[in-house]
C-alpha cells in the first residue's frame, strides 16, 4: 500500500510508502525536487530545507 500526493513544485503524482514518517524527505520522480513530508494523515508536502553549513553528524 502507498499514499499518493502531489509534488508542490511540478504537480506530478508522488507515491509514498505506507510507513512514511513526518519529517522524511522524498524525491519527486518527475522533477527531482526534494520534498519534506509535513503530515501523513492526510499527506502534506513542502519543499525540503536547503542544506545548512552545520548539518552533519
Amino acid at each position: 500500500m502507498c499514499y499518493m500526493a502531489e509534488c508542490i513544485e511540478c504537480g506530478a503524482s508522488v507515491s509514498l510508502h505506507d510507513d512514511v514518517e513526518a519529517g522524511e524527505i522524498i524525491d519527486c520522480g518527475t522533477c527531482g525536487s526534494e520534498l519534506e513530508v509535513l503530515e501523513t494523515d492526510p499527506v502534506a508536502l513542502d519543499t525540503a530545507p536547503e542544506l545548512e553549513e552545520d548539518w552533519g553528524e
Binding site: 514518517e21 513526518a22 519529517g23 524527505i25
Partner: peptide, 25 residues
C-alpha cells in the same frame, strides 16, 4: 529535524519493541 534512514531504523526498532515514541521536531 529530518527523518533520515538512520532515524527511520531507530523509530521502527523502538516501535517494534513496544515502546512509545514521541517525535520532537
Amino acid at each position: 529535524s529530518r527523518i533520515r534512514r538512520d532515524e527511520k531504523l531507530l523509530l521502527n526498532e523502538l516501535r517494534e519493541r513496544g515502546h512509545e515514541v514521541t517525535k520532537l521536531d
